[in-house]
Computed example of a mutant assay.
Amino acid sequence: MKVWIALDGVGHPLDAPGGSAWEQALPTLRPLVDRGAALDATLGVPGQPQSGTGQSCWLTGQDAVRVMGEHFGPHPGPTLQRLLAQHSLPVQLVQAGARVALANHYAPAFFEAQRRRSRLGCFPFSIQAARLPLNPPGLPLVPASLGLDYRAPWLAHTMSLSDVSALGTALGGAARAWDLLILDLWFSDLLGHAGRDPTPVEVMRAARTYLCRVDALIEGLLSSGAEVVLSSDHGNMENLLIKAHTLARVPLAASWTDVRGPLHVVHGGQWLKTWMGLPGTAEF
């Protein structure tokens, strides 16, 4: 019963400014993050970390920034696609005989957009590279917005907080039939890009609401007995005074143990492979 929650664009609270969305009651999420590690996402390369290279580091355990020669994203181009198709966690797990699924819900509009112009993010690309379907049958699928509207002012219309917790419980129960379920929660990066100084009230409200819903989702997962890992690819939503990505460190947290040893996002990807029983290149 293993679930990996991959946040997009959420820096570690240790590197967040005062008054950030992290500063609220998050009774499940915050203790989890505080027991984990704060990992460097820059890898010593100038510029703002990006989702394409950052997520590729997590998915492969390799330095995708060095492969590209720069931070690159948001979508993986041909170079990163080759890296993901050979070394990503879903591909290698399927080759080892494991059952893996991306538990995101993709609406019909997503598939229509892909037919017009294919621009898959790293997670759906890796799933398809492993010859696995999007919207896998038999799973309670999770919308990346966790029930918030996709446009400003991002109000919660489709799911209550208790609905999100119940969805987490259902997903954790379904995870018994799988070796790994993955959630690509990219909506936080969308909210982060709405930031500016002064931060609009509706942006901060949406960011705080989103973290509350991540908290509820994890609470539901843990109530089902699932092992949960939480990560993020780069900073953004932790600092809503700007709309760009940040140089903040990012979390790596595990529900069953303190995380010690990994220093940066490449280590984080190697740690994930070790967790899943795949050969790694680092010892922690």
Rank of each mutant, 00 (worst) to 15 (best):
V3D: 07
A6Y: 00
A6S: 15
P17Q: 00
P17C: 03
G18Y: 00
G18Q: 10
L26A: 03
L26S: 04
T28P: 01
L29N: 01
L32N: 04
D34K: 11
D34A: 15
R35M: 08
T42W: 01
G44Y: 03
V45D: 00
G47A: 07
P49I: 06
P49V: 03
Q50V: 02
Q50H: 12
G52T: 10
Q55D: 10
S56C: 13
C57Y: 04
Q62L: 14
D63I: 01
V65W: 11
H71N: 06
G73A: 08
G73E: 07
G73Y: 10
P74Q: 09
H75E: 15
P76L: 03
L83V: 12
L83F: 11
A85I: 01
Q86F: 08
Q92S: 13
V94D: 07
Q95R: 15
N104Y: 10
P108I: 09
P108H: 06
F110G: 12
F111S: 06
A113Y: 05
R119K: 14
Q128G: 05
Q128E: 14
R131I: 00
P133I: 02
N135Y: 05
P136N: 12
L141M: 09
V142C: 08
P143L: 12
L146T: 12
G147W: 09
G147A: 10
L155G: 07
L155D: 13
L161S: 06
D163Q: 01
A166I: 02
T169L: 13
A177S: 15
W178E: 12
W178T: 09
D179V: 06
L180H: 03
L181T: 08
S188W: 02
S188A: 15
G192F: 04
D197W: 11
P200G: 06
V201G: 09
R208V: 02
R213E: 03
D215L: 05
D215R: 02
E219Y: 02
E219P: 00
E219V: 00
L221R: 00
E227G: 13
S232R: 07
H234Y: 04
M237C: 13
E238I: 07
L240E: 05
A248D: 14
L252W: 09
A253P: 09
A254M: 12
S255A: 09
G261M: 10
L263K: 15
L263Q: 15
V265K: 08
H267W: 05
G268Y: 01
K273P: 01
W275H: 11
M276N: 05
